[in-house]
């Protein structure tokens, strides 16, 4: 495993105990320059994970708690008329940061959701005819409650597609929860910083240069094509999904310390990358009725 990444994961795991797999996926998502969606029941540590992750990689971040009355301007910013200069001045909203933590994104109205997701896609916002570029790179880590909970507006498929990965945390194992309970001290997140923001950029560049052979690309395509051809899948994986799989697999391979992507890497990130694209409604990750698992089980990686 890559030493730097190992260190980051270790640090975050001190806060989010017993969820190393998810921590690793979250880091991979970050390294692959993708937005991350964490979905789970309240109180499972979604926010903790996102905060720890942000501070671990040295990003400046703003946190926005989404509610049903949150307006787009609350995220993006507003232009206010200044009496002394007789002109409008733009007051940037919380979105103008390196990392935006969008808590409970599905509690906001669709209007606000789409304003955020548009910004995520275009990396810029337009207010009153003026375009303001966002930080580059710009990340969103969103958390959401399962959609059957009351007071939620489920994110539409098109917007879910913008997230590179969706992960869910699940209940912590017995031992982990035990040590969590034993831990008395308040956590100071600034202690958990491992790398600077610049170092993160170098890591991201390294991830991009990981070698992916034609065979592994063919494996990805075989998976993606099956979702398009087979009738078992109501939604199929888009080309953006293929790109996402590759980017995530590269990041995973990098964290793994490998110099090239193998089908194992693809499989490792596959569920996180595709589940929310194949079945938007909440399914417990890796369960037998998961379409992504079905897809994985139907393609033989040795025969491509």
């Amino acid at each position: 495993m890559d030493k730097q990444c190992q260190q980051i994961i270790k640090k975050i795991s001190q806060v989010v105990i017993g969820k190393e797999e998810q921590v690793r996926l979250a880091l991979a998502c970050l390294l692959a320059k993708g937005h991350l969606l964490i979905e789970d029941l309240p109180g499972m540590g979604k926010t903790t994970l996102s905060h720890t992750l942000a501070s671990a990689v040295g990003m400046s971040y703003n946190r926005v708690q989404f509610t049903s009355d949150l307006l787009p301007a609350d995220i993006i910013g507003v232009s206010i008329f200044k009496a002394d200069t007789h002109e409008f001045k733009f007051h940037p909203g919380p979105i103008f940061s390196q990392l935006l933590l969008a808590d409970e994104i599905n509690r906001a109205s669709p209007k606000t959701q789409s304003a955020l997701l548009e910004a995520m896609a275009e990396n810029q916002v337009s207010v009153d005819g003026t375009t303001y570029p966002l930080e580059s790179p710009f990340f969103v880590i969103a958390t959401q409650n399962p959609q059957f909970q009351s007071g939620t507006y489920p994110l539409p498929e098109s917007q879910l597609d913008r997230f590179l990965m969706r992960i869910s945390l699940g209940f912590p194992p017995h031992q982990a929860e035990l040590s969590m309970l034993k831990r008395q001290t308040q956590i100071d997140l600034s202690d958990y910083n491992c790398i600077s923001y610049e170092e993160l950029a170098t890591l991201q560049a390294k991830v991009e240069s990981i070698y992916a052979s034609d065979e592994v690309l063919n494996y990805i395509l075989a998976l993606v094509n099956l979702s398009r051809e087979s009738r078992d899948f109501p939604l199929s994986l888009s080309p953006r999904a293929s790109l996402a799989i590759l980017a995530a697999a590269k990041a995973w391979a990098y964290i793994d310390g490998a110099e090239y992507v193998t089908p194992d890497h693809v499989q490792a990130i596959f569920l996180a990358v595709t589940e929310h694209r194949l079945s938007p409604s909440f399914v417990e990750s890796g369960s037998t009725d998961s379409l992504s698992v079905k897809l994985l089980n139907s393609v033989d990686p040795t025969q491509i």
């Binding site: 089908p263 194992d264 089980n297 033989d300 990686p301 040795t302």
Partner: peptide, 10 residues
């Protein structure tokens, strides 16, 4: 025996 989705490493 190898299951379909398994790679040799697995």
């Amino acid at each position: 025996a190898k299951e379909t989705q398994q790679t040799p490493t697995q």
